[in-house]
Amino acid sequence: MLTDFLQLTAAGLSQGSVYALLAVGLISVYTVRHVINIAQGDFAMMAGLGAVWLISAGMPLFVSIVAAVLTVTLVSVAIERLIIARVKKLTTLVSIILTLGVSTLLQAILLLVWGPEARGLPVFPGSDLTIAGVSIRAQELWMVGALVFVGGGIVFFYEKTRFGKALRACAEQPVAARIVGISPVMASVLAFAIAGFVGAIAGVVSSPIYLSIWSGGLLLGLKGFVAAVLGGFSSFRAAIVGALLLGVLESYVAGYVASGLRDAVAFFILILVLVIRTDGLVLKPTAVRV
């Protein structure tokens, strides 16, 4: 019993690490642009499929991964420059429709370029472990490791460095940001670059186990969003904890209740949290100026 429990926990934590990386990407963009990027999960799928393709073209694993991650980062920046920045009055309604359009477009491109099948990268180097009957795949350690190093690095950047703090303040206090030499344009580009980067990292580390498929990004991105909501959509740390919790909870539901309900967990939590803490979850209540 205990072995099973630990086995499910381990699987949940590795899956949760992927959600956490996506949540970090979503929050990066949200704090600067007040846009929830529905295409966030598609970055992961694009990186995964791109890397698979590079490997099939004869490139070594890590070269393919680096190339895919950098490409996706550039794609994310291009989306910001060519599409998001073009809209003069980016209302909530417009931003949702726009990123939804981008997401649909990216999915269609992935489908046209790499076809409808799910593909996976080969597993990363390392050997699987069995600790007290619990099998831990080396790839799962890579996933958790990606969260610790990449996710942790981004959080450190935002929370500890002067530049990062100014970037976060950019949305509320453009003046403060300018003092350290960040223009709103640069802040926005940087935010999308970070979002593309962490999304791509999440995509490549999860690809060997969870595979990459053209249509998989939406659900993945949504789970990142749920994690971000759990963290109040402003705290990276809380979002990461929320993501890990979500991953573990999904794993328990799939193991102990019914695997078909796995994907429903995130949305029940989302609606429950939003309903119970309607006010508490709205960012910083913008001061009413009337």
Binding site: I83, I97, L98, L100, G101, V102, S103, T104, L105, L106, Q107, A108, I109, L111, L112, G115, P116, W214
Partner: peptide, 16 residues
């Protein structure tokens, strides 16, 4: 060789 819900390409482009 394009297969699947290829009309999504049109939907995405048109939306944007």
């Amino acid at each position: 060789g394009a297969t699947g819900e290829v009309q999504l390409l049109g939907y995405g482009i048109v939306l944007v």
